[in-house]
């Protein structure tokens, strides 16, 4: 089995439909634009199209969990144990194996929830953006991009969905999101801990890893979809991020990146109008 499996080789059954990032971001109905959507951006039970938006978000969580599982699995396989720059500590691999189990459970949870919400697997398109971040050949850049940027995003998404479950009076959704949120805090903490431990005496590598995280964070601020405003569809979950090893300054930086991504998305839409 080869090392580093390219995203186009991710194996799926016939139900799944893949969408490129370019197509997703250029879709004016989606997160990158607002022209096709009426009403407030925030997902609330009384918002227009709330059931369909919640179903789409849950399906997005499901495919994200598959890719998170695949990414953690590949990290188990792609790197040998050792002190080299392209190697990882034994304990890091054990953490990635643990994450495999967690992500497999998250897939199971999101499949059950999707079924409950009336969604069929493959009903919404999948883009492989999460897994692409998990293909970085530097294990620390990979871990920082996946476990801090993307799993950090998962903290924000699960916290938002948990609140949606509360306000919608759906205790099963709230219960499941609460459990998944606990796992995501653990995964982000793994990323924070390994980043600090491995780059303790290598500030250049740490900076490269953090820069990669910024790129991923900005890309997945989803055109301003995530933020701290009351109308943000995905709220930045400060408290849980701090539990997972983010400093206040780091959360501030993500908040600023999200604002910037939102302004850029609006400018792009205005230019295209």
């Amino acid at each position: 089995m080869k090392k580093i499996l390219p995203p186009e080789e991710l194996a799926r059954d016939a139900r799944f439909v893949r969408l490129s990032m370019e197509d997703r971001f250029n879709d004016r109905r989606g997160a990158g634009g607002t022209s096709g959507r009426t009403g407030p951006m925030k997902l609330t039970p009384d918002a227009p199209q709330a059931p369909d938006r919640a179903r789409a978000l849950m399906h997005g969580i499901f495919v994200g969990e598959i890719q998170a599982l695949e990414g953690a699995g590949r990290t188990c396989w792609d790197f040998e144990v050792g002190p080299g720059a392209d190697e990882v500590p034994f304990a890091l691999k054990l953490d990635m194996a643990r994450q495999c189990w967690d992500e497999a459970r998250h897939c199971e949870i999101s499949i059950k929830l999707s079924d409950w919400m009336g969604t069929e697997l493959g009903e919404f398109a999948e883009s492989t953006f999460l897994y692409e971040a998990a293909c970085n050949p530097d294990p620390i850049l990979r871990l920082t991009g996946v476990n801090r940027a993307l799993e950090g995003l998962a903290i924000d998404v699960f916290n938002t969905m948990r609140e949606f479950g509360q306000s919608a009076g759906d205790p099963v959704l709230e219960f499941c999101e609460d459990w998944m949120l606990a796992d995501e805090v653990t995964h982000v903490k793994m990323g924070s801990d390994w980043l600090r431990r491995i780059t303790e005496n290598d500030p250049d590598r740490r900076e490269r890893a953090l820069e990669f995280q910024r790129i991923v964070d900005k890309l997945f601020s989803l055109g301003g979809f995530r933020g701290e405003g009351d109308d943000s569809p995905i709220r930045l979950a400060r408290r849980f991020r701090e539990m997972a090893g983010f400093t206040t300054e780091e959360v501030d930086e993500i908040s600023d990146l999200s604002k910037q991504a939102g302004e850029e998305a609006r400018a792009r839409l205005a230019a295209n109008a």
């Binding site: 080789e9 194996a11 059954d13 599982l69 953690a72 699995g73 590949r74 990635m96 194996a97 497999a104």
Partner: peptide, 18 residues
């Protein structure tokens, strides 16, 4: 772990991860 991404069958994928 490496095989998870290479297996199209969803139930197998999840069991391998576990």
């Amino acid at each position: 772990g490496g095989w998870v991404a290479t297996v199209p069958e969803l139930d197998v994928k999840l069991r391998l991860g576990t």
